[in-house]
Design a protein around this nucleic acid. Structure first.
Lengths: 205, 205, 205, 205
DNA sequence: CATGAATGAGTATTCATTCAT
DNA sequence: CATGAATGAATACTCATTCAT
């Protein structure tokens, strides 16, 4: 990778970082391109060398931040020594929920697009470092636990959508109840969704 | 209701109707208050007599349109003579999904806020006709089927959030799969969620 | 005409006046909408209530100023008591040339579009006062002198295009010669063009 | 001419060619230096090695294209075996008019500056190939026909300005009439202008 | 109540030009 | 000579909101 190339990556990272700070502090709508440029210490025109517009940046950033969340969850899992696939999934989801509870601004920013961090979207490819994708770790975990799953991707999709959606409502709006109150039900729902897709019990038989 | 009052309601309805057409055709961001006023045949200033701003109107409209969807689903249910609470819930959700498939622009507009049509939000109260609320019908259905449910509200919440979220992805983005492909899994998920909250079987025993 | 209507006309006139001053002083390209608004004592947004953009204003203004020139020439003619159609035409053209020599900035602005002041263009209709059109005076002069002319409109067109084009070169660029040097030839050319279209002499015979 | 010199000329020609295509397709105002560089396959900075700015390039290109038109007309004349100076002039002007009718984008670009192709302007010198200038051919034609002309340069100027101006109006705007309708009158005008400057007939007498 | 002319702050975006490589 | 990343000044234009009629 040439000097110039490294430089370019750095600039893009700087812009993303600055934008994230501004989006979570002032909100997306009230953040201007000028703000982002100023905060990055770069010229306004430079912004347009790296992103089409504010929306483009937001989408890429959303995918990036959501992916980061799952990456962190996975790292935490590795350190936590959790046994069994279901427990591992619960650990990961609880980790994500916990992070979103601690960082409501992040949740506000990600909004209900948590799944962008897991599934490939139009915006994912441009963030190259995301090569170590969560879904691969997830499949590995399944494999390690010798789980047979009809459609692992759709199982994950179902769970992540449910978690993302309900976190938004329960954490940010506390509607219809707080996350504290909802969490046991959410766990149960996840538990049952896991059951739909896997045949572990039958396996044992 | 006085003459003046009727007149006012009519104007508001006109504004909402015009706005809905514009939002679904041009998109929310590209629709201006001028557009809405012009399309309504009213003066720009009149808009402000009925709504605080564009966002206020959008939120009310979203809640209204989502509520309408569940209202229509319930009406259809009454005509369809479906027996059993689970079947009734499936009927309703399938009806809603079907409508969203047929009206992607409506789905785009409602986005992942389908639950605004079911639960009271900050925007619900201003739309007074919505007094016949879906959740009451829903509780009635449950009662009619002699279902015991731990927390009917959270059960509905869980299902609606899951349906709303996955419809958005599967119908509009076809990500990670089309709704056609996902629907059987979604049915299963709903089935299991119903099971979590209800103890019908055990009851019978 | 209502109060509001009068007010609107006044505003448009103010904008045109301010723009003309700026265009002839700073040049068209270097004049900004902000300049025009500031100079008019009006808000920037008001500009867009009256003109589509800078180009729209320029075109309308060009037609207006060119028309004004011919209007003034005609007024001067009435006072000068000139006999005979050819003499009258010469008087008018010389008057126009003289004005353009005295006001090179005006010539620069009108550029080679002198004929916009005589013939209806896309921009003419919006300037309503221009109802007393030069071409009607011109036809009247012809009538008064009992001139038969094959195609009076094309005769005028030919002359005005020639005058406009050559003024631009000879006055502003002094290329290939100065207007002083060229004028006798221009007179001769006009004289011959008049002859092409009219058959007065032969008629008399 | 050294290798380097040839290379330079080639680059300049490439830039001119690319610019011409863009100017006639997108229009001058909407064409950027970036566009020209991209289309030429050269770097943006390279543009500035050859031209001061976009206006510089346009002016040179206008003079070049207009000159080309007269060059082509002269070539065609040589092949056509036309006798007599007036016929030759008519042939040339008709050739030019025909080309402008067939290439309205070219006419749009040249605008009313057709005479830049004939007379030396500030922009002519930089295009060195234009050493075989039309005006020399023109004088040669006159000489060959033994025409005495008071001021050949002004005669040509008058004709070219008239043709350029009226072509713009009649071909592009069809105002006040189409070129088809105007052409006979234009011919007559040219004929008379030729008469003004030359004394052939009287000479012969 | 209704109107729509006027406002002007606010922002995205462009693009000519430079200069380190 | 050639490059093209970076710059940032410069401007057009929008649109929510107000308020006199």
């Amino acid at each position: 990778m040439g000097k110039v190339e490294v430089n370019k990556r750095q600039k893009q990272a700087t812009l993303l970082q600055a934008a994230f700070e501004l989006f979570t502090n002032k909100g997306f709508a009230k953040t201007t391109i000028s703000d982002i440029a100023r905060e990055s210490g770069l010229a306004k025109g430079t912004f347009y060398l790296y992103f089409k517009d504010k929306y483009d940046l937001r989408n890429k950033l959303t995918a990036h931040k959501a992916a980061q969340l799952f990456g962190q969850a996975h790292s935490a899992l590795l350190q936590a020594n959790v046994e069994g696939f279901e427990n591992q999934m619960m650990f990961i989801m609880d980790y994500v929920i916990g992070q979103l509870q601690r960082q409501p601004a992040l949740l506000q920013f990600i909004s209900k697009n948590l799944s962008w961090g897991v599934f490939r979207t139009a915006f994912t490819q441009t963030m190259p470092e995301e090569s170590d994708r969560f879904i691969d770790y997830y499949l590995k975990l399944m494999e390690d636990s010798h789980i047979r799953c009809r459609n692992p991707e759709l199982m994950l999709f179902t769970i992540v959508e449910l978690v993302g959606s309900t976190c938004y409502n329960c954490i940010l709006l506390k509607q219809p109840v707080s996350m504290e109150e909802y969490r046991p039900y959410l766990h149960e729902a996840i538990h049952h969704i896991l059951m739909i897709y896997t045949d572990t019990e039958k396996e044992k038989a």
